[in-house]
Design a protein around this nucleic acid. Structure first.
Length: 362
DNA sequence: CATGCCGGGTG
DNA sequence: CACCCGGCATG
């Protein structure tokens, strides 16, 4: 019975446990700007980012400018935005889609109503299914972690996963010159769309970051909080949000809080491009204007759009998503795996109590 | 089966 | 609160 407890040869002996003076999960309250990179431990996570992002979020628009205390010089961070994925496959697929659409007999014959009939359904249906089955849950867990263990990055209002999602691809800024570009605020419940980057930056500075000085001299922090959209592609996608309650991508109303759900960075972007082409009715109109079109093709439940007015997209999610909502089970090794059953005393408390691991968060 | 952890129990 | 554990979901 007593054999459990290993002799524990005192601290600093033969085999010092990997966790050293690592960190107290409880000590995450105060965030010191410059994390003492002392005798760093390998897996010392930087601790939950964003104490202040949350803070700023609270006051909300308007009242935010109470204390314009200059943010301690924020660490320079690569200025990426535009989460858009690799453009190449996208283009190919999009082109294919266009082609198939344009060759569709329907378009040749009856343009107007043709859209919401069966044949045009297939392509997007297919597209819809694909991203779900292709989950690349390979490496991101640690990717992010190791990335962030460097100095304190300014924390965007998004979870680390989202950050990965955002910055996964470095330079994919490319677009057709004929496409118009919009900028959408990614701040939690905002989602505002402006037509100019500078406008968006100002919006973010004023409304969300709560500062107005140093207008041109900004450190680029704002860039984290918005993304670009191309009209004709993403903007249509946006309209789609209000159209399809059940669709996985549709669970993101104006604001973007649910990024976690769309784990795979690129794939979803593509299929989303596809439906809009097949979808005739502009979101707003569909609710009141043409119900007949709706019931004519019950196959497409997107017509139930009005229901989406309720701020509760969750229940609409199909079983599949509902399941993934139930914690995808992190990939990172947890205390149990790392230390093994017979070093239970090395586990973090949470693990010992069979709670969510606090040391190796996903 | 092993693992991770929620929900609920006990002191 | 800290400390456990039954039991379920998941791989």
């Amino acid at each position: 019975m007593e054999a459990e407890r290993p002799p524990a040869p005192g601290p600093g002996c033969g085999g010092p446990p990997p966790r050293a003076a690592g960190r107290d999960p409880a000590a995450t309250l105060v965030s010191v700007p410059a994390p003492p990179q002392g005798p760093a431990v390998e897996f010392a996570l930087p601790q939950e980012p964003e104490p202040r992002a949350a803070d700023l979020g609270a006051p909300g628009a308007g009242a935010g400018a109470a204390g314009p205390r200059a943010p301690l010089a924020h660490v320079p961070v690569p200025v990426h935005r535009a989460p858009r994925g690799k453009a190449q496959p996208d283009e190919v697929m999009a082109a294919a889609a266009l082609t198939s659409l344009s060759t569709s007999p329907l378009l040749l014959g009856a343009p107007a109503v043709a859209f919401s009939t069966e044949p045009s359904l297939e392509p997007w249906k297919e597209a819809l299914v694909r991203p779900l089955s292709s989950c690349s849950s390979g490496d991101w867990g640690w990717d992010v972690a190791s990335d962030q263990s460097s100095p304190s990055t300014p924390s965007p209002p998004l979870p680390p996963e989202a950050a990965h999602f955002l910055f996964g691809e470095p330079a994919l800024r490319k677009r057709k010159s004929s496409l118009q570009v919009l900028f959408q605020c990614l701040w939690k419940r905002c989602g505002k769309v402006l037509s100019t980057a500078s406008g968006m930056q100002r919006h973010i500075r004023l409304v969300h970051l709560g500062r107005q000085a140093e207008p041109e001299q900004s450190d680029g922090e704002e860039d984290f909080y918005y993304t670009e959209l191309d009209v004709g592609m993403d903007s249509l996608t946006e309209g789609l949000f209000s159209l399809t309650p059940g669709s996985p991508t549709a669970s993101i109303p104006p604001s973007f809080p649910r990024l976690e759900l769309l784990e795979p960075p690129e794939p979803p972007a593509l299929p989303t491009l596809l439906h809009p082409l097949a979808l005739p009715p502009p979101p707003v109109l569909s609710s009141a204007a043409s119900p007949q079109v709706c019931h004519s093709d019950h196959a497409y439940q997107g017509c139930q759009a009005p229901t989406l007015l309720e701020p509760q997209p969750t229940p609409a999610l199909p079983a599949k998503l509902g399941a993934s909502l139930r914690k995808p089970r992190g990939d990172a090794k947890k205390c149990r795996k790392v230390y093994g059953m017979d070093h239970r005393d090395l586990w973090c408390t949470a693990c010992r109590w069979k709670k969510a691991c606090q040391r190796f968060l996903d």
